[in-house]
Design a protein around this nucleic acid. Structure first.
Lengths: 188, 188
DNA sequence: GTCTATACAAAGATAGAC
DNA sequence: GTCTATCTTTGTATAGAC
């Protein structure tokens, strides 16, 4: 069974994705988690900043784990696997969800939150880059390429949320596959 | 000379880029624009929603104008021109600025704001797609490609803001140029 | 059109009983 | 550890004088 503290973090991740840091309220987190008001500063003495940082970090770790499980093959099929894996997440964005890690980058005056987001994004690109080098891409190109894939993912969140549909993602995915297959043609 | 109303809109664009819709306060807008408190509902009877919608729409139109002025040539040099044009904007994101149109997509329960953002993004992709067809790309591929460029732009805003540097943009730009030149080799 | 003053709600944060 | 109650600040929104 999940502890109260865990439920609060999960509720915070959801709230971050939908409303961002400033738009998220303790009231919403407490309602969703069933916790009492005083529980916040009991479990998170640092207040909102601490709760938000831990929630975003947890979400970032989960995503990194998923990215690390992608099958390694030639670059083109890795890109295809990446796109297929993130599509359901972006689909949720079209319905108003968004990315929790991206949400904490918008905080006005919190350098520590931006650092948490930077660490998460860096872990994603590093993980993806490792898969690309496994697929035969050079180290420099793999790092650049992995950054591009995460950039596309984050941009798709924004465009699909605005559009209310997954259509922008699908247009982008077609282009990405077209470009990468011309650059790294399948050996077979 | 700019009217009070114009200065309020400009201040709102800045506030949106830095703090988002929920994080933006009338107090900040009034301080930055030098307007009085009562001026808000005089010029914008619809309150915050109306002010924010008009600010984002103005920002969206400005960007579209810039995109329409890009020189048309082969696809690869158009991409190069696009990347060079947006780089300074993304550089501001690394310092905490962000994109005003992207900011209004995060609003919790405002469908009209999301529609404003969707219209702006659509005008950008349509404008870019027209340049691509001028450069000889087919209509379907041009639409997909233009969406991909805007997706990269929005993703770069997010990653660079998190990182605090322009480095993610530059890594993405290298990859984008590498991919597009292999797909559409220069005629010369 | 522009200003001051204020009403009303909601936010984050704290204190202290159980 | 968990809860209720409350303090303080800040936000949006409005009223009305000039």
């Amino acid at each position: 069974m999940a502890t109260t503290r865990d439920r609060m973090i999960d509720a915070t991740v959801d709230a971050l994705r939908q409303k961002g840091v400033a738009g998220m309220s303790f009231t919403a987190v407490l309602d969703a988690s069933g916790a009492a008001r005083g529980a916040i500063y009991h479990h998170f003495p640092g207040g909102k900043a601490e709760l938000v940082a831990e929630a975003a970090a947890r979400n970032g770790n989960e995503v990194r784990t998923h990215l690390g499980a992608l099958p390694t093959a030639d670059p083109a099929s890795l890109v295809a696997a990446f796109l297929a894996a993130v599509r359901p997440v972006v689909e949720a964005s079209a319905d108003g969800a968004g990315c929790a890690v991206a949400a904490i980058t918008v905080d006005p005056d919190s350098d520590s939150l931006r650092a948490v987001a930077a660490t998460a994004f860096d872990s994603w690109t590093t993980t993806l880059a490792a898969r690309l080098t496994d697929a035969g891409v050079g180290v420099q190109a793999a790092t650049d390429f992995a950054t591009t894939l995460i950039t596309l993912l984050q941009g798709a969140h924004v465009l699909c949320r605005a559009d209310g549909t997954i259509a922008p993602f699908d247009r982008m995915a077609r282009t990405a596959m077209d470009l990468v297959t011309h650059r790294f043609p399948p050996a077979a």
